[in-house]
């Protein structure tokens, strides 16, 4: 077979952990269609932390839902570790923006973190150890018996992160997880993500609309255009690996990158596609 021949002849090429090819999503709405995502192609290597940033309404959530298998794309493919994603894959975890609605209010913090493991039939002792470790890593080992709604927003999001961490996914998807928490909590949570990423070596795709956040967190930043979405730029973030809120954000290079992404996003907002979509919307409204 040609495939095996080429692999034999060429040096072993690693399969990307996550591969998105020509992804398109068209919604059917009453009175017509809306193209939310037009054509997206990008890869994530194993252990990468990549931020997706784009203007609001740029189909970020749609994209994430397609990648996580929660929604079917119109065309294009998503591959996880070489196999096609057709439904929510086992080795993927998602952290949603709406922390208040992604945790089960009738379960304690501990039970929330434990549930996916229980569902996977992980033995009890191992389960307990994983849950303890996960709660500890997000700094919540003191509240396992509380209910999520008794905690602050930031702490609830920590529970959701702990649940994902305990699950040991290969890929962690985060959909604007900090959009609804206050600024200080947000800074703490950003550092938490960096720490967890380094500890676990997990591949993270982090979606945000916050430019500073994307530059501070990511090893790479993918800038999206406004809807219908395409990749506007794929930018390497060459900041030192050790980052902290005070010093990293004060680095001249951080400022440069930040300004660059900012300019890109402004361009994305005004891009030629904008007119097209307005025309389309107008047509669909008729």
């Amino acid at each position: 077979m040609t495939v095996s021949e080429t692999t034999m002849n060429q040096p072993v090429k690693t399969v990307p952990m996550l591969s998105v090819r020509g992804l398109q999503k068209i919604y059917k709405v009453p009175g017509g269609e809306v193209e939310a995502v037009r054509d997206l192609t990008f890869d994530l290597a194993e252990g990468e932390l990549v931020c997706l940033v784009g203007p609001s309404g740029s189909g970020k959530t749609t994209l994430l839902k397609c990648i996580s298998g929660l929604m079917e794309q119109t065309s294009g493919t998503v591959e996880l570790n070489g196999s096609k994603v057709t439904g929510p894959p086992k080795s993927m975890a998602v952290v949603f923006q709406e922390y208040g609605r992604s945790l089960f209010p009738w379960m304690t913090v501990r039970a929330n973190v434990e549930l996916p493991l229980k569902n996977q039939k992980v033995p009890k002792a191992e389960r307990a150890a994983l849950v303890d470790a996960a709660l500890k890593s997000v700094g919540l080992d003191h509240v396992p018996k509380s209910y999520p709604w008794q905690l602050s927003g930031g702490m609830q999001q920590r529970v959701a992160i702990a649940r994902a961490v305990a699950y040991r996914p290969q890929v962690l998807l985060m959909d604007e997880p900090f959009a609804a928490v206050d600024a200080q909590t947000r800074a703490d949570l950003e550092d938490l993500i960096r720490t967890i990423w380094k500890q676990l070596g997990v591949t993270i795709l982090f979606v945000t609309h916050d430019i500073d956040e994307s530059v501070y967190l990511g090893e790479r930043v993918i800038v999206l255009s406004s809807s219908p979405t395409v990749v506007q730029e794929d930018l390497k973030i060459d900041l030192p690996e050790e980052r902290d809120q005070l010093n990293t954000r004060a680095l001249p290079r951080f400022m440069e990158l930040r300004s660059h992404v900012y300019a890109e996003i402004q361009r994305a907002k005004l891009g030629p596609v904008t007119e097209q979509i307005t025309a389309q919307r107008r047509a669909s409204l008729k």
Binding site: L70, P88, A93, R101, S102, N119
Partner: peptide
């Protein structure tokens, strides 16, 4: 039932009787 909770369940593969 809440759509986000539903998505959480699906993404963790919690289906059927569970």
């Amino acid at each position: 039932v809440d759509s986000v909770l539903n998505d959480s369940c699906r993404s963790y593969g919690i289906a059927g009787f569970a």
